[in-house]
Design a protein around this nucleic acid. Sequence first.
DNA 1: CAGTGGTCTAGACCACCTT
DNA 2: AGGTGGTCTAGACCACTGC
Lengths: 241, 241
Amino acid sequence: MTKYIDIATTLKQRINSGQYKAGTSLPQQKTLAKEFNTSRMTIQKALDVLDNEGLIYRVQGSGIYVKKNINFLTDMKIPGNQYFGATHLFGKSHHVKSKIITFNISNPTKEAQNALKVTYDQAVYNIVRLRLVDDISYALEYTTMPTQVIPGINQEVLLDSIYNYIQNNLNLTIGSAYRTISADKPDQLDQQYLNCLPVDPILQVQQIVYLDDGVAFEFSRTRQRFDKGKYTIFEAGHPNL
Amino acid sequence: MTKYIDIATTLKQRINSGQYKAGTSLPQQKTLAKEFNTSRMTIQKALDVLDNEGLIYRVQGSGIYVKKNINFLTDMKIPGNQYFGATHLFGKSHHVKSKIITFNISNPTKEAQNALKVTYDQAVYNIVRLRLVDDISYALEYTTMPTQVIPGINQEVLLDSIYNYIQNNLNLTIGSAYRTISADKPDQLDQQYLNCLPVDPILQVQQIVYLDDGVAFEFSRTRQRFDKGKYTIFEAGHPNL
DNA sequence: CAGTGGTCTAGACCACCTT
DNA sequence: AGGTGGTCTAGACCACTGC
C-alpha cells in the first residue's frame, strides 16, 4: 500500500535471495530512487525499515552494506522478543490450557500500586493460573490487573487468553513492557504445581505491561522450572539514536 | 547540531517539565513547524525520536499524545537494555576488577563454530574470568572470541575491559546482540568462585554479540548467584513497524 | 576533490478521526 | 466536511569517506 514499505519489502527479498550479497554494498540511493521511480527521501524511509530490522548498516560518505550472518537473525521471527503470554508462543499443534488456582478482586498491595500506578481504593484482580501445554504443567502465573482498565474479566476469559480479550473485545492496543528476569529458589506452590524438587531452580519473569497510551494494565510474575524455559531476546544496534 | 535532534530534545524537556501533560495532545505539527521555523517533515523526524523512546503515541487523524506514566520509563537510562559487560554497569564509585581463571587459544567447539560462524581451523580465545565489584565476587564469565576478528587480546586487556579495547584500540563498532537467559543449578566452579551452596540457583545470560557489520565477535556465558543479579529490559511498542 | 549518505525544505496529496 | 497526521516529491545543502 505505502510505497516505502513496498520498496523495503522488495529490497528484503533481494537480500534474502542473494541478489545483494552479505558484506557488499547496495546500489547508491540515487540509483535506487530512479529504479523505483521515487525520491531519495522515500528510499531513505525504506532503508530505515531494513536498518531497524538489522539487515543493513550505513556508513555516511561510503555506502549502504548488507550485514553478514543475517540468516541467523531472520530465523527468529518472534515479532518483538517473545511477545506476551504463553498462548501465542505455541503453534496450533500444541494445546495450551489454564487451570485457575485463585481468582479474586481486592485492593492492591503497595507493590502493585507502585507498579500499576493505581491508588489503594482502585480494585485489582488477583489471578493465579497454572499454564499447561499438552497437559503438562509449564508455568505458574501470578497476575494483577486494575479492574478499571480491564473490565469484565471472568473465568471464561481466564481459561482462554487475556490478551485476546483485551485486543478483540476491548479493542485496546498493547504497547510496551518492562521486564525483570531472575532466578529463585522454589517455594511451596512451585514445588506443588511445577513438579519440582527443593534443589530445582526457578526462572522468573516479572513484567509490567502498558497499553499504547502508557497506562499500565498488567503486573505479573511467571515462574518456570529451570529446565522448562529460557528467555531469549534480540537486541538490535541503535541505528537512529 | 542537527535540527531534528534539537527539536526532539526541546520537546522532551517540555514533557519532562510538565508543559505538555501526560494524556494530553501536543500542538499540531503545522504549529510546531512554524514555532521551530522548519518544515513538517523535520518535525516528523523529531517526533520519530520521541516515539522510539516511548514518550508519545500518535493517532492518525486525531493528534499526538503524551503517554502516561513515562516518569517510570525515563528513569531507566540504560541506553539499550543493560549494555554489554559489567564494566559499564557500575559508576565510578565502584571498583570493577577481573581475576583471570583460564586464558588460552584453541580450535572452536562445534557450539562455538555455530554461534560465531567460524570454521574449526579458525582459532578462538577461551577466557574464563571472575568479575569482582568492590572486591566481592559478582559473576563468572566464560568468553569465546575469534582471534581473527579481535586480534591482540592479552592479560592486560582482560584485566581492564574487552569492550574498551574493541572500541578504542581496534576502532570497531559494536552492533547487536542475541541473548538467552536461563536458570541453572550451580556447578563445581560456581560453588567455588561465587561462594554458593548446592541449593543456590544460578542466573545465566548467554549471548552472541555482533559488530555493526554483522560479524559475530563474542560468544559468552555470564553466571551469577541468584541473589546477586537480575536482568532487566524495556521493550518499546512497535511504532514504525 | 569527487562521491556518497544525512538532513532539510515547501508544498502537495492521501488516509483517517471527528463532527 | 474539516482537520489531523502519514506519505511523497524534487531539489538543495551539508558531513563524511576515500582516493
